[in-house]
């Protein structure tokens, strides 16, 4: 391999890293908030609320993120006058906000299932015991339900973070120059496909490795009673385009 070129490629790809991390972090936070709302709707007693949540989740999980990005970016561009009237155009005009919106809406659908899974995994006996000693409302959530649900949902949530980091690569299709966008540009300029993609792949692998290690550490820290049982480096289910 041509080492000087690889080093050069690595340096220019790193310039896209802040944007990759920014997109991943902001959309993950926004998606988590939206996911809690969706999970709450999904577990509500009101049928239309449940149906809305189910419809939302199955639509965003049943269609490719890439198409969702094109739909939001180019599709909404068609309705500029209306969006201007609503005051949304200053945001939707920018590819950055469109990418964030698409990533957030998509990830929220998956994350809401993680949240729901976590809440459902809280043993009824624990809740009953808490009620028996007189806990209720917020205190019950804060002391019992949230800690248990969080611990249960953590591995799946970790997978979602890794998927999100991989998904940000799709923002390159709407002119965002994050790591993959820069890689495509570099290839078009240097015509050296394999070197560039090895370096880009290494950057993603490194980030994801660090994320996986962090999640594993938090998991160990949250479950002192379950130490041992080493798992694989990455959590088991890591994809959904």
């Amino acid at each position: 391999m041509d080492m000087p070129f690889m080093a050069e490629a690595f340096v220019s790809l790193l310039r896209g890293l802040p944007l990759t991390l920014n997109l991943a972090a902001v959309s993950m936070v926004a998606a988590s908030i939206l996911a809690i709302g969706l999970a709450w709707l999904r577990m509500s007693d009101v049928a239309p609320a449940r149906a809305t949540a189910i419809g939302y989740v199955s639509f965003f999980r049943g269609t490719p993120l890439l198409v969702q990005i094109f739909l939001i970016y180019y599709g909404l561009g068609q309705f500029r006058p209306t969006l201007q009237a609503w005051g949304l155009w200053p945001f939707l005009r920018e590819p950055y906000w469109c990418a964030l919106l698409a990533l957030t809406l998509n990830a929220a659908a998956y994350a809401s299932e993680v949240v729901r899974g976590g809440l459902l995994s809280v043993p009824a006996a624990q809740v009953e015991a808490a009620r028996a000693v007189g806990m209720s409302g917020l205190l019950l959530y804060r002391r019992i339900i949230i800690p248990i649900a969080l611990r249960q949902a953590l591995p799946a949530y970790g997978s979602e973070i890794i998927i999100m980091i991989k998904s940000t690569s799709l923002a390159s299709v709407i002119t965002m120059m994050e790591v993959t966008g820069l890689a495509a540009k570099l290839i078009a300029e240097s015509f050296r496909v394999i070197e560039v993609f090895v370096m880009a792949g290494a950057i993603y692998l490194a980030i994801n490795f660090m994320v996986a290690q962090t999640i594993a550490a938090v998991e160990r820290w949250l479950s002192p009673h379950l130490r041992a049982a080493p798992g694989s480096i990455l959590p088991s289910e890591i994809a959904h385009v």
Binding site: Y74, G77, Q78, R80, R93, E94, P95, V173, T175, M177, K185
Partner: peptide, 18 residues
């Protein structure tokens, strides 16, 4: 500068006013 994969995509963005 914004770079697009296809010229038809920059046309869409031009008419959208982006």
């Amino acid at each position: 500068v914004r770079e697009y994969k296809a010229t038809t995509q920059h046309d869409l963005d031009l008419s959208a006013g982006r």
